[in-house]
Computed example of a mutant assay.
Amino acid sequence: MPEPRPEPWLDDDAGALVRPFTATGGRTRPAAELDLMTLVRATGADVRGPAVPEHDQMLALCRRPVSVAELAAHVRLPVTLTKVLLSDLLERGAVTTRAPELTPHQPTDKDLLEAVLHGLRKRL
């Protein structure tokens, strides 16, 4: 009699339950210095197949400059894990990074910041 196949660990809301560090091979620190506002863009370079599906997702999202924070939200991964995976892509030459452009001629909009603060307070 065949042994029963194990059921995948699933959660109705979250989907498959896999520890995030398995995608990084247990690594918890990125090799590159990346902050939440770092802009990432795919280079289009031909790289040997990404090691995990998240690499493919990230490359697809990076066709235009996107921040590390935005990228983490889109792929639904913790920021630290996203940074580790981005470091892999950076080492392969698949993406480039740069700091966001902030100029003194574009001051921060106080009304926008107050609206964001108001929205955050409302949600908390």
Rank of each mutant, 00 (worst) to 15 (best):
P30C: 08
E54R: 09
L86M: 06
A115S: 00
S87G: 15
A23V: 07
R76M: 09
P53Q: 09
A32H: 11
P50M: 08
V40T: 00
G93V: 03
K110E: 05
E54L: 12
T38M: 02
A69Q: 12
G49D: 13
D56T: 14
L34P: 00
V84S: 05
R27Y: 02
R27F: 05
W9M: 15
V18E: 10
A94D: 00
E7F: 11
E7V: 12
T82F: 01
V40S: 00
L85H: 03
R76W: 07
M58W: 01
A23L: 12
E33H: 13
P30T: 10
L61V: 07
P100H: 05
A51W: 02
L113D: 00
R48T: 15
R64M: 08
E70S: 14
R98P: 02
K83V: 04
R63K: 14
V40I: 13
T24R: 01
A16C: 08
L89R: 00
P104A: 12
D11G: 02
A32P: 01
A94Y: 01
L77K: 12
T28W: 09
A14C: 07
G26Y: 02
H118Q: 11
L102W: 12
W9S: 15
P65E: 06
D46K: 15
T43I: 05
G93H: 06
T22G: 06
P53N: 07
D46S: 15
T43S: 05
P4E: 08
V66S: 01
T43D: 01
A51S: 13
M1Q: 10
A99Q: 10
L86A: 06
K122L: 13
T103N: 07
D88T: 06
H105I: 07
L59A: 05
Q106I: 05
R76L: 09
G49I: 10
P78K: 14
L81S: 12
R19D: 13
A16D: 06
P53Y: 08
A31G: 09
K83R: 15
A73T: 13
V47S: 06
D111F: 11
E7P: 03
D35I: 02
L117W: 04
G119H: 12
R48A: 14
